[in-house]
Amino acid sequence: MATTTHEVAGAAADHAAESAGMPQLDFASFPNQIFWLAVTLVVIYWVLSRIALPRIGGVLADRQGAITSDLTAAEEFKLRAKEAEAAYERALVEARADAQKIVLQARAEIQKDLDAATAHADAEIAARVSESEHRIGEIRAGAMEAVVAVAREAAADIVAALGGKADAKAVAKAVDARLKG
């Protein structure tokens, strides 16, 4: 273990000394290792701080930003969708109310028209009925007169046929009496 090779002598002697113990304690190699470590660390630090870390940090920040803005946009869209739904709902209710009103109005109008038409028809029917009754009465009266005239003529003819002398007044009186009773 006690290999203290200070001298940077011949390589062969050096190697022999090193293989006997721990190369970690070979102080002759320390400056070399420390120098190259320093170079390595400076290079890595330069690459990281100048290129790699700002780039990765930027990418991560961009992604975070994109996610956040997407989320807010989604939230906004959701809100808008909800608003639209509410508006639609409201419109539906209004439309339904309007429809109800229109139906009622239409029904009332139709009822009114119907009532008017019915009244008109009733009046017309009544007028026609009375007219018809009047005419029936006329016809009936005319018929009665005709019957009386035919009966008188027939009675006078029958009396004449039986050989009697037909007194027009007596015949009329007799026919009238007969018709009355």
Binding site: H15, G21, M22, P23, Q24, N32
Partner: peptide, 24 residues
Amino acid sequence: MEQFIVKPLFGDGPVNWYTPTNVT
């Protein structure tokens, strides 16, 4: 422990502070 020996990359000379070695 041989694997840990610091050796020059080129030739077999002494290991100076600037020598390119397997460490390098």
